[in-house]
């Protein structure tokens, strides 16, 4: 059973994926309160009774462009307490700006492929529900590629770059330590070095957004 049973509203226009997601969430012990197929219905059910978390596809009827993102922005503006996880068939850092505009409340932006890594996906879900930020590794890769000419970034060691990438994905020190198979103390040391080299404030709560803001230039 998960640390906490979340009440979730799911918006995904493909029936196949909607049911696949619902069964994964169900198995994990979460409550899929509503599963809808378009952005308007999503807004309606969320407004009627706010859930803990919203999982939404980006591209949905009727326009099949970025309806999910716009719905997410509307929910964030009206009901900032709800965690929002945006799933997409395709991710690009250009979409981050519309997601990260507000700095309060949990937000996540992941490739749909990540759902298949069930354990990690469920952990991301918990982080978003707890008000954290989760960014797809692919997006982080793009951000790092963009800033590779940058002076301060070039000063980081390869290991520090790995740690920076994992921080940008929204991971906490323990998770980074596990991923890199090092001790948490080592991770803390790397984090300290990174913040010093990039001239950032290591404000513990908002370090993900600090890193992302830095990477987005």
């Amino acid at each position: 059973m998960p640390a906490r049973r979340l009440s979730i509203v799911l918006a995904e226009d493909s029936l196949l994926l909607r049911e696949g997601l619902a069964s994964i969430l169900d198995r994990a012990g979460h409550e899929v309160r509503d599963a809808v197929g378009d952005a308007d219905t999503l807004l309606a059910v969320v407004r009627k009774e706010p859930p803990d978390l919203v999982i939404t596809d980006v591209r949905m009827p009727p326009g099949h462009s970025d309806e999910g993102l716009r719905a997410a922005a509307a929910i964030r503006a009206e009901l900032p307490g709800i965690g929002i996880l945006v799933l997409s068939q395709y991710v690009a850092d250009a979409y981050l700006s519309s997601l990260l505009e507000s700095t309060t409340g949990g937000i996540g932006y992941l490739l749909k492929d990540r759902v298949g890594h069930v354990t990690e996906f469920l952990a991301s879900l918990d982080r978003v529900a707890d008000g954290g930020t989760v960014v797809d590794p692919e997006v982080v890769r793009q951000l790092l590629a963009r800033r590779r000419d940058d002076g301060p970034l070039a000063a980081l060691t390869p290991r520090e770059l790995e740690v920076l990438a994992l921080m940008a994905e929204g991971r906490v020190n323990s998770s980074i330590a596990e991923q890199l198979v090092v001790s948490e103390a080592a991770v803390r040391k790397h984090v300290g070095n990174i913040f010093a080299k990039l001239h950032l404030d290591d404000g513990r709560d908002r370090r993900v957004s600090a890193v992302l803001t830095y990477l987005r230039g």
Binding site: S14, L16, L17, G20, L21, S23, I24, R27, R59, H64, Q89, K112, D113, V115, G116, H117, V118, T119, F121
Partner: peptide
């Protein structure tokens, strides 16, 4: 593009979900 997105891609994503569950 629309055809690929709505068809093949969705099915492949569905497949990764099922495989992910099977792994568990």
């Amino acid at each position: 593009e629309r055809h690929l997105h709505d068809g093949v891609q969705q099915r492949l994503v569905g497949l990764t979900m099922t495989l992910g569950l099977a792994e568990l």
